[in-house]
Write a protein that binds this DNA or RNA. Structure first.
Lengths: 222, 222
DNA sequence: ATCGCCTCTTGAACATGTTCAAAAACTGGG
DNA sequence: CCCAGTTTTTGAACATGTTCAAGAGGCGAT
């Protein structure tokens, strides 16, 4: 009962086939029957390993998060300022995700469903989420900011990133150039606000916002 | 070909029955067959009037928006300040929506789908959206604010409201008290930021944000 | 009244995610 | 090698949103 490599092999075969078909034909147009047939197994077999069609996408999440982490790591060598770093991280994400835009739109509705395992807040998405947040933690190294804010900032930035994703999914402009605009022009604003977050007048507002963020558990909704 | 009252009657019968069953048993557990049977028509007949099950919920949207408009109108008599007004408007929305929380969660995934007619940005949701935005326009009457910002503010507030809805749908706390907290404590922050939006330092940030908001058409995504 | 046309209605058929009881394949102990 | 138990596999059956060809009903013109 330890590691029947057989099972793992079938599992991998199924998820790999599924992800390939998703990429080739989109999420909705890929039926469970097609996946099973292409993988050379029965439909029931797929359901033996994955509770639902949605669960097959979880692997995709993890792959993307890992790809983003690796691509981002290369950006932190230069000692650029916060705004440049954040911009770079988000643009890299955009480049990585661009090929999957149509695909993403199709299963996005499942991802935003609070009860779905695909929700970015769900426990199933835990590892992908942690990976994403850790990117922002690294991004913040060496950045001067109100310490009260610093602790929550990685999660707040991740939340902002989720907002960008939300916009991206709705973005119908050619090549999602509007999302690119959103990123390149919103990050300087965030940078300025961050810089101002320490001056009196704004500081109290900032701290109240951070406290609210903690109290309502915005970071652990699922 | 003017007004065959017959058709309108059947249409109303179907949508009324559907909304009742949705309320009683939830969206997912209410099948098209059940709706048809309860209304005393055939399944195909329901599809003659409504292109999909989702379209049946549109009536629910409009009802809610109208109820919110009426309830909000009563709040604007007293010459309260901006923060109080915004808080009141959002809390009233929360009270109106509370009974439908479970129901709303079930079809929320469809509502957030960019391709769904239920998306708050879709043309089909146009009237409900206009109603909601007009509430915020009324709310802003007499409030002093940077004129550059004033024009976009109703839509920005509506967008904020959509954010609250997004949180509300994910809110699993007893009676959605976390959403209540979010509203009562975030609105003062918005009020303060609005007040500060005219002082130098923040004004430039504000204007850039407004310009960005216009350029990427955040208000007309669908 | 009859015909032509449009609106409305029907229910069987279809597509697809999911379930499940049964069978097959495998594994370790004797 | 054989048996009992576990893991894996199968495919038919089910549930439900959706489609569609066929028919029913009504209405004005002739």
């Amino acid at each position: 009962m330890e590691k029947p490599a057989k099972g793992e092999q079938t599992r991998a075969l199924i998820v790999d086939t599924a992800l390939r078909l998703f990429r080739e034909h989109g999420y909705d147009r890929t039926t469970m029957r097609a996946i099973a047939k292409e993988a050379g197994v029965s439909v029931g077999n797929a359901y033996y390993y994955f509770p639902s069609k949605e669960h097959l996408v979880q692997g995709f999440y993890d792959q993307m998060a890992e790809a983003h982490r690796q691509a981002s790591a290369a950006l932190f060598d230069a000692d650029a300022d916060f705004t440049s770093r954040l911009t770079a991280v988000l643009l890299v994400w955009l480049d990585i995700s661009a090929p999957y835009h149509e695909f993403a739109v199709q299963f996005f509705k499942n991802a935003i469903d609070p009860n779905s395992p695909l929700s970015p807040f769900s426990t199933e998405s835990g590892t992908a989420r942690e990976t994403a947040i850790s990117i922002h933690r690294r991004l913040l190294e060496g950045v001067k900011v109100d310490p009260k804010l610093r602790e929550e900032l990685p999660e707040l930035l991740w939340l902002f990133q989720m907002g960008v994703v939300l916009y991206w999914v709705h973005d119908k402009s050619e090549g999602q150039r509007n999302t690119r605009t959103l990123i390149t022009r919103s990050t300087p604003l965030i940078g300025k606000l961050l810089a101002m977050s320490r001056v009196p007048g704004l500081r109290s507002v900032t701290r109240e916002a951070v406290q609210l963020f903690r109290d309502i558990g915005l970071s652990r909704l699922g």
